[in-house]
Amino acid sequence: MAETPSTSETTGAPGGHEPAGFPPFKTETFPSQFFWLAVTFAFLFVVLWRVAGPRIAGTISARRGQINADLGSAQAARGDADAANGAYQTALAGAKARAQALAEANRKTITDEIDRAKAAADAKAQEDVAKAETRIAEMRVAARAEVSRAASDAAVQIVARLTGETVGTDDAAAAVRSVTGN
C-alpha cells in the first residue's frame, strides 16, 4: 500500500479512513468517469452500428424474405393443385358424357334390333294367322257343302222311306236350300 497522499486524497482510495461525502457527487472522480464512458460507449456504438445491427437486420429481413417466398410458392402450389383439380373435373365430365353417349347408342341399337325382330315375328304370325283363316274358311265351305249334300241325301232317303217316291237329288238339294236359307 504505497500510495501517495495526493492519490488517496483526490480519489478517495480505500484503506485508511472512510471518505466523507456522498460518493456520486465526488467531482474528483468525474474525469475518469467521463473518459471511460466515452471510450466504452463509443466502442459499443461502433460495434452495434457497424457489426451487430446490420447482422441482425440482415437475418431478420432474410427470414422475412424466406417466409414470403415460402408463402408465395405455397400459393403457387395451391394454384397448380386447383388447376389440376379443374382439369381432372373436366376430363371426368367429358368421360362421363362419352360413356353416356355410348350407352345411349348401345341402347338404341339394341332397341332397334328388338323392334325389328318383333316386327318380323309379328309379320310372320300375321301371315300364319291369315293362312290358317283361309284354310278354316275353305274347310268351313267344304263342311257346309258336305252338310248340304248329307242333308239332301238324308232328305232323299227320308222321302223314299216315307213315300216310296224317288226324289231327284237336285230337287232335294233345292228343298234343303230353301229350308236352310242358303
Binding site: A2, E3, T7, T11, G12, A13, P14, E18, P19, F22, P23, P24, K26, T29, S32, Q33
Partner: peptide, 11 residues
C-alpha cells in the same frame, strides 16, 4: 453508500 464509491483499481 460504500458501494457507490468510484475507486481506482490501479493506483
Amino acid at each position: 453508500m460504500e458501494q457507490f464509491e468510484v475507486k481506482p483499481l490501479i493506483e
